[in-house]
Amino acid sequence: MKPVRSLARIMLSGIFVVSGARNFQNPGRLVTAAKPVTDRITPLIEKNAPQVPTDTESLIRINAATQVAAGLMLATGKLARPAALVLAGTLVPTTLAGHPFWNNDDPAARNNNQIHFLKNLGLFGGLLLAAADTEGKPGLRWRAGHRIGHSRRSVQRSGRSVQRAVRTAKREARIAVRSAATARRLPG
């Protein structure tokens, strides 16, 4: 199953690497479409990350560089699950800025943007699947639950061992007391 996963990750990441590289080299062509989205997130960025540039062209380049880096990570399988989540995150503003079909009056443009919007929605779903894929290995949640259960059973076993040791020590103490009492009663 590993070759299928590897091929699927490469195929899924290809669009992000190629379009990210293009958008990084030439962000100017996207500024007009991206401006309404970047204007809305600029206050949030300025509040939480004041060192990040907030002009539209810089934000397009940051998004593009992120897509290239995360796309390559997904393709190579290095930190594939977090990379898929990052790509899903970059896809949201890209889709909202690039394909707002609800704003189009022209039926042909509306239809075209709606198709691209739905395509990106499908990519988003694929990225969520890639982010959830544990490659047949147990996920973090299962492993944590398993560890907790294992630890609980280990503590219970230790508790039972301690109880047995205490019972044995009490029994041996009673035997020792009886032996001492018997030894005192014997003449001699």
Rank of each mutant, 00 (worst) to 15 (best):
L118I: 14
D106G: 10
G126C: 02
L123E: 04
N120Q: 05
A130P: 01
A131K: 02
F124S: 04
T134K: 08
A108Q: 13
A109F: 08
A132L: 15
F117Q: 03
A130L: 01
Q114P: 01
A109I: 10
K119I: 02
L128T: 04
L123F: 14
K119C: 03
H116R: 11
A108G: 08
N111R: 14
G122T: 07
A132M: 13
I115R: 09
A131Q: 07
G125A: 09
D105F: 13
L129S: 13
G126L: 03
L128E: 08
I115D: 05
D106K: 08
D106Q: 09
A108H: 08
D106H: 11
H116G: 03
N112W: 11
G122S: 09
G125M: 06
K119F: 03
G122N: 07
L121Y: 10
L121E: 10
D133I: 04
N113G: 11
L121M: 10
N111M: 15
R110K: 14
D106V: 10
D133V: 05
F117C: 04
Q114C: 02
G126S: 04
D105N: 15
L118C: 12
G125P: 01
A131E: 06
D133E: 08
R110M: 09
N112F: 15
N120K: 02
L118G: 12
L127F: 02
N113S: 14
A130G: 01
A131F: 08
A130Y: 00
A132G: 12
T134S: 13
N113V: 09
P107R: 07
T134E: 15
L121Q: 09
N120A: 06
N112A: 14
A109W: 07
T134I: 10
D105E: 15
N113P: 06
N112Q: 15
P107E: 10
Q114D: 05
G125N: 04
R110L: 10
L118W: 14
P107C: 07
P107A: 04
L127G: 00
L118M: 15
N112M: 14
L118T: 12
D105H: 13
L129W: 11
A130T: 00
D133C: 05
N120M: 04
L128R: 06
L121K: 04
H116N: 14
L127Y: 00
A109G: 08
A109T: 11
K119A: 07
G122K: 01
L128W: 05
F117S: 02
D133K: 02
A131P: 01
N120V: 01
D106N: 14
F124Q: 01
L121H: 06
G126I: 03
N113H: 15
R110H: 12
F124W: 11
N111K: 15
L118D: 11
L127Q: 00
R110G: 05
H116W: 10
F117M: 05
D105L: 13
